[in-house]
Simulated assay, not measured.
Amino acid sequence: MTSISLPIFGQGSQPAEEDGVELEYLAMPEEMITYRMPQISSDLHTADLAQAKTTFLQLEQNLADYPANSPAIDLITLDQTNRRFVDELLGEGEVSMICGSVQKLRIQESVLAGVWRLQQLNGKQIVSDALDVGIIPHQVAQLAFADASSRIDTDMSALPDGVMNAPPLLAELNAKITKYQPGDEAHIINLSLLPQTEQDLTFLQQRLGMGVVTILSRGYGNCRITATSTRNVWWVQYFNSQDTLILNTLEVSDVPSVACASPEDITDSYQRLQEILKVYL
């Protein structure tokens, strides 16, 4: 029998270069968060969960009524047992946010996409706790740019050494934010594709300023989103699972879409909640 030699492909299959240089591969994200049915502690019994049942039946109705604006569901009055059940059933989804500087609003997406947990903090004390349904809580955009500047300082009379390509980007951003209206398509500047020096990036940060909203989206890798102190301008950075920056962008929008749920997500969450309620309540 004649043997047939098949070609071998992949890393390590080819001979090394004569100069000893090896091709290096950028590490890709290793895992992606997927939905799993919540696991509830065995010591939580249905007979003790009347408050939680009322809460989740209202949440089911709010999901069914979307996109109608339903009132947020107050959780602050739940007793310890019912609060623990709510915590375990909702879990933590992909997106978390911190809004504000003095009194902070902490927002956490649940495992049900489009269902958001909003907690107002006074120091470490939780003073309000609520559930909201939507693409993104409306408080995010309101708080992000409540005190934001409507225009970027474009005085270039004394540029720091090393600043080369930042000034045209500031002019481009000024033109976009002047015309931008809520709901308009996002305008994205990909800094990763532009020749930017370290001084350029520092100059951009200084002129745009730092806002009061920070968002982390943990899907396939991490996306860190920071509001600037310039109206509707966000700094959006994508990292792989090795925490290496792989995409660096500026975005003019209400809220970057990577942080938002979709109408399809909310429909799916409605169906999942029905399945969960059949099991636990």
Rank of each mutant, 00 (worst) to 15 (best):
A146N: 15
D147M: 03
S149Q: 10
S150F: 00
R151P: 01
I152G: 06
T154V: 14
S157K: 12
G162W: 13
A166T: 04
P168V: 01
A171E: 11
E172K: 11
E172P: 00
E172H: 01
K176F: 08
Q181C: 04
G183T: 09
N190V: 03
S192C: 09
S192I: 08
S192R: 11
L193W: 04
L193K: 15
L194G: 01
T197A: 05
T197K: 10
Q199G: 11
Q199L: 14
Q199N: 15
Q206M: 11
Q206N: 10
G209Q: 06
M210K: 15
M210A: 15
V212N: 14
I215N: 03
G219W: 00
G221L: 10
N222S: 13
I225F: 01
S229A: 15
V233E: 00
Y238G: 03
F239A: 01
N240K: 08
S241P: 08
Q242T: 08
D243C: 11
T244G: 12
I246N: 07
L247R: 15
L250A: 10
V252A: 09
V252Y: 09
D254V: 04
P256W: 02
S257P: 00
S257V: 07
S257I: 06
V258C: 12
C260Y: 08
A261Q: 01
E264K: 13
I266Q: 02
I266A: 09
